[in-house]
Design a protein around this nucleic acid. Structure first.
Length: 633
DNA sequence: ATAGGGTTAG
């Protein structure tokens, strides 16, 4: 018997048409599939809807990369003719195209329509929840999977665990892991990753050592855990075991992961080693993604010139590479360089929103007000980019720093979205620089309405009161903080010496060379004072301890607290443990304070050292008595 | 009546 024919292709059965579409999907061959679709439409597909054909079309578009066409076919089929597989096909399509929000919306619609759900559907759901950190839908899906008896499916359990890990719920993930009767290597690596990221590298190591088998993913997670947290030696020895002991090669995913860990902890030693490895194994033609990771790593390790070097040697540069370079330059306050390079970028790649975030923030950090305004003005007109809240934040920052408060305020009022903490917080920062107490108070109230526990803006305003001579107000604000139990995040500075990271907190006496460090500190303060250094105690109402009886002790105590700030200790350690004249690279988790900033400038000339400090916002390169930020930070 | 969806971890 002959199968029924389709009017568009009298020689082909519907069954054969479906097979054709399916092979177009697998190829993938978008052109041929589209022609088939066109022929089907012109011959009146909609008049005699063959749902099997529609489903094949849906599958084809879902696999071949056109999301809108897949959606169109999907919604063209009546719900009564769609089953679990059809819904899941579209969900998978959203997942592949990194559109998790659409995926979840579809899942919710699916449940509303009463379509039954199976293991394949849930894998896409958990994937989307993980990407969005949407634990609500995730828990819902977990419930469904239990009800359907899918707790025995290793893949479902793995994605559930991954979802919990990505949402920060390690306990839930561990619970699933323990209930599993059978586990795959993926189950182990998901748990390992969760332990390293959410508990500690140490407890991750315990999992790593007890795993029944270890693949390159497991090794990478462990090495990245060590390097990202500053354990250079442990990380490096593990890389050695991985390559020479187990014979693994580092592929480009591993290389990128390692470089990003180095960028995070500032470990340029290992970063350089990875660079050499990449050159040796890949030759001159390093993968563009790895090259971009190298640019990012060097820039974040304070070696912006090395970053430029890698960047200029790249054969091809895309937007991502350009953005990495520009954001690196922005962090280092090289505003003029960015403006010089930008016309070159336009010839090689199309700038996107991230490009302009770097460009505008560089203008703001370098005080290039007119240039910043010019690019912001052209954002939509010339580059067809709708300004996002980040761009408004840069502009408010730019205008505020320059003391143009009215314009900044007008811009905030004109924004199509309500201002967030970043926008208001940066204006508050400018208020503190320019002593605009009244506006500062207003901003603080607004900020506290958004986030009552924002320590930083409390501190900013109290420092403003103190500098403005309003001691009573400063004290009462301090009281509010104390009563609410809000505490400052402790500042930590770290410095690498001989491949080992040394960490210091304020007043730290735990380092084995504490005696020598504090002797150097005494000497440094003496020399600083001779050069005319005056401790900026006025800004420090907040860092001191409890109430004090007498004013003179007070001042001395505050001074002592200033002297033993973590970055000063790190510098002293650097001075006594490295060769004369070699530069010092220091990382700080918070912003550098005003006093340390002015002290570092002098230290760089007294000891003839280049001092590079990466703080939470940007880099400061102190050289011969001045800083690359031109005191504009 | 038929076939068709996904590979989770760095």
């Amino acid at each position: 018997m002959r199968w029924p024919c389709h009017p568009a292709f009298p020689s082909l059965s519907c069954h054969q048409l479906r097979s054709l579409l399916r092979s177009c999907a697998r190829r993938p061959s978008l052109g041929v599939g589209k022609k088939l679709h066109a022929a089907l439409i012109t011959s009146g597909l909609s008049a005699t809807p063959d749902t099997f054909l529609c489903n094949a079309l849906l599958h084809f578009y879902a696999l071949c990369g056109s999301v809108p066409s897949a959606c169109k076919v999907f919604y063209g089929i009546p719900n009564s003719h769609k089953d679990t597989v059809d819904w899941t096909t579209l969900m998978g399509c959203f997942a592949r195209h990194r559109m998790p929000a659409n995926g979840l919306r579809l899942f919710i619609e699916m449940r509303r329509e009463g379509v039954s759900i199976d293991d394949v559907t849930l894998i896409s759901v958990f994937n989307a929840c993980a990407r969005l950190s949407n634990v609500e839908v995730g828990v819902q899906g977990h419930g469904v999977s239990k009800k359907l008896g899918l707790s025995s499916s290793i893949k479902v359990c793995n994605t559930v665990m991954d979802m919990y890990v990505k949402c920060g719920l390690l306990g839930e993930a561990k619970g699933v892991f323990e209930e599993m009767e059978e586990r795959s290597i993926v189950s182990w690596t998901v748990i390992l990753d969760g332990m390293v990221k959410l508990e500690s590298v140490g407890s991750g190591r315990v999992v790593f050592d007890t795993m029944p088998e270890r693949n390159e993913v497991a090794w990478t997670i462990m090495v990245v855990g060590y390097l990202g947290n500053g354990f250079t030696r442990e990380g490096f020895s593990l890389i050695g075991e991985m390559i020479f002991g187990c014979g693994f090669m580092l592929n480009f995913v591993t290389l990128c992961s390692l470089l990003s860990a180095c960028a995070q902890s500032g470990d340029v030693m290992i970063g350089r080693w990875v660079h050499v490895y990449a050159l040796k194994t890949m030759g001159k033609e390093i993968d563009i993604i790895v090259e971009t990771a190298l640019v990012d790593m060097y820039a974040k390790c304070g070696r912006v010139d090395a970053a430029i070097e890698v960047f200029e040697h790249m054969q091809v540069r895309n937007v991502v590479a350009w953005n990495a370079m520009l954001s690196g330059l922005a962090m280092h306050g090289r505003g003029e360089v960015i403006l010089d390079m930008f016309p070159r970028m336009v010839k090689e790649a199309e700038p996107d929103d991230l490009t302009f975030t770097s460009l505008l923030s560089a203008c703001s950090h370098s005080g290039l007000v007119e240039e910043g305004c010019h690019y912001f003005h052209n954002l939509e007109l010339l580059y067809k980019i709708t300004p996002k809240i980040e761009h408004y934040a840069c502009m408010v920052d730019l205008l505020g720093r320059a003391g143009r408060f009215e314009e900044a305020w007008v811009l905030i009022k004109k924004m199509p979205m309500p201002p967030n903490e970043v926008v208001l917080g940066s204006l508050l920062g400018s208020c503190s620089v320019h002593g605009k107490l009244e506006l500062g108070e207003r901003l603080l109230h607004e900020l506290l309405r958004m986030d009552p526990y924002n320590t930083e803006c409390h501190i900013l305003l109290s420092n403003m009161y103190a500098l403005g001579g309003k001691q009573d107000k400063a004290n009462s604000l301090r009281h509010v903080l104390k009563n609410r139990g809000i505490r400052k995040v402790p500042g930590v500075s770290s410095i690498y010496v001989d491949g080992q990271v040394h960490q210091f907190s304020a007043g730290d006496k735990s380092h084995p060379q504490t005696t020598e460090i504090y002797m150097k500190l005494d000497e440094m303060i003496r020399k600083l004072r001779l050069t005319g250094y005056i401790p900026k105690t006025a800004s420090q109402v907040f860092s001191g301890g409890d109430s004090r009886a007498n004013k003179e002790n007070d001042l001395e105590e505050i001074e002592q607290a200033l002297f033993s700030h973590s970055e000063k200790l790190a510098v002293c350690f650097g001075l006594i443990s490295t060769r004369a004249g070699s530069p010092l690279y220091i990382f700080k988790n918070l912003r550098t304070c005003l006093d340390c900033h002015s002290a570092m400038k002098m230290v760089s000339s007294i000891y003839d050292r280049e001092i590079v400090i990466r703080d939470r916002n940007r880099f400061h390169c102190f050289k011969r008595g001045s800083c690359s930020c031109s005191d504009y930070w």
